[in-house]
């Protein structure tokens, strides 16, 4: 879908992106993560030609984008930025309709699309269609920002720290929204963040950048269990490593397909539940076993605490991450 070959960008004597090669697969949710100044935003902005690389080739669907008209390229790639950048003099409807209007869609089709997107982003069309950006909260503005980026049904969505300025609750809600939109539309998403937890929660693959170089590009589980360098391990953080490890897998991976005998009290958990939630549930109930149901609500087996603590299907990790000392207790 998007292929980068030894892409390099310098600003003066500073090399922002240093010979990065990678591919983003069709339909993939790829998260670029790294500290500030690691080149992740620059890399993203080269994908829609907001920045031109000094050397290297970027292909979208096999075509070298250096040979494509930049406006046409950008109109088929959605773009969302941290500061949202809604047009303050336009209503929500007109903001969302920006790209369809540029592409000359018929009015009725634009209107239907706006309604559809407002509903997708959980904004009541009756209330928000004619509102102006200054009348919206930060989270609502970014919902409109995402809707605007999706308006012309782009196959690629580029997002530059879209939720970094939002409070944790709003951010969590929008992350959930993005995961659902990705599942529902199959849009290829390239998402930049400096927050490794956000990356692990959203990504099919996490691309870790440092000093302009691509350090590791791997699924969240591999980033956690097999970090390519100390830098990646530091970025993941040693705090609550175990919970993060559990969070990247679902109950389905660890459930024992056995009948719940004797019957386990309490409501069952879904097999799609992330494992850290299941652990939390066990602690809350004071139980070491949970009944599990599949997506249709049929019994799917039993989840055992022992299987959370150690993956029954995997060998023990070669280099277990070092945990911080447990005592004396660290002040929060």
């Amino acid at each position: 879908m998007i292929a980068l070959e030894r892409v390099t960008k310098r600003f003066g004597s500073w090399t922002a992106v240093d010979a990065v090669s990678m591919t983003v697969e069709e339909g993939e949710f790829l998260v670029l993560v790294g500290p500030s100044g690691s080149g992740k935003s620059t890399l993203l902005r080269m994908m829609n030609r907001l920045i031109a690389p000094d050397s290297g080739i970027i292909r979208v669907d096999g075509a070298d984008i250096a040979g494509l008209p930049p406006e046409a390229l950008r109109r088929r790639m959605g773009y969302v930025i941290q500061s949202v950048g809604l047009f303050p003099h336009w209503t929500v409807e007109r903001n969302i309709a920006t790209v369809p209007d540029l592409l000359g869609w018929p009015r009725a089709r634009v209107r239907d699309r706006v309604t559809e997107l407002l509903e997708l982003l959980k904004l009541d069309p009756r209330r928000f269609r004619t509102a102006y950006p200054h009348q919206l909260s930060g989270g609502q503005q970014q919902r409109v920002g995402v809707a605007r980026a999706l308006a012309a049904e782009p196959r690629v969505l580029l997002m530059d720290e879209p939720f970094s300025a939002l409070d944790p609750i709003t951010r969590g809600a929008l992350q959930g929204e993005m995961a659902a939109i990705h599942r529902g539309t199959g849009t290829t998403i390239v998402f930049v963040t400096h927050d490794m937890d956000e990356a692990l929660a959203l990504a099919d693959r996490v691309a870790v950048m440092d000093h302009g170089r691509l350090v590791q590009c791997a699924p969240p589980l591999a980033i956690l269990t097999d970090p390519a360098s100390g830098m990646v391990r530091d970025l993941v953080g040693r705090e609550e490593w175990g919970l993060k490890r559990l969070a990247v897998e679902t109950v389905a991976r660890r459930v024992r397909p056995e009948p719940a005998i004797p019957p386990i009290p309490g409501p069952p958990v879904s097999s799609a539940t992330p494992l850290h939630r299941a652990l939390s549930e066990m602690v809350a109930r004071g139980a070491d076993r949970l009944p599990v149901v599949d997506g249709e609500g049929r019994p799917a087996g039993v989840l055992h605490l022992a299987d959370l603590v150690r993956d029954p299907s995997a060998p023990p990790p070669v280099s277990p991450p070092v945990s911080p000392p447990v005592s004396p207790p660290v002040s929060p």
Binding site: L73, I81, S83, L102
Partner: peptide, 25 residues
């Protein structure tokens, strides 16, 4: 800058940005 950047990133050309966004604002 955010408004300018999003205009560019969404695929407005320089004149479209000027007439649709910059001058009205």
């Amino acid at each position: 800058d955010a408004v300018r950047e999003s205009a560019r990133g969404l695929g407005m050309g320089p004149w479209e940005t000027l007439f649709r966004v910059e001058l009205p604002l």
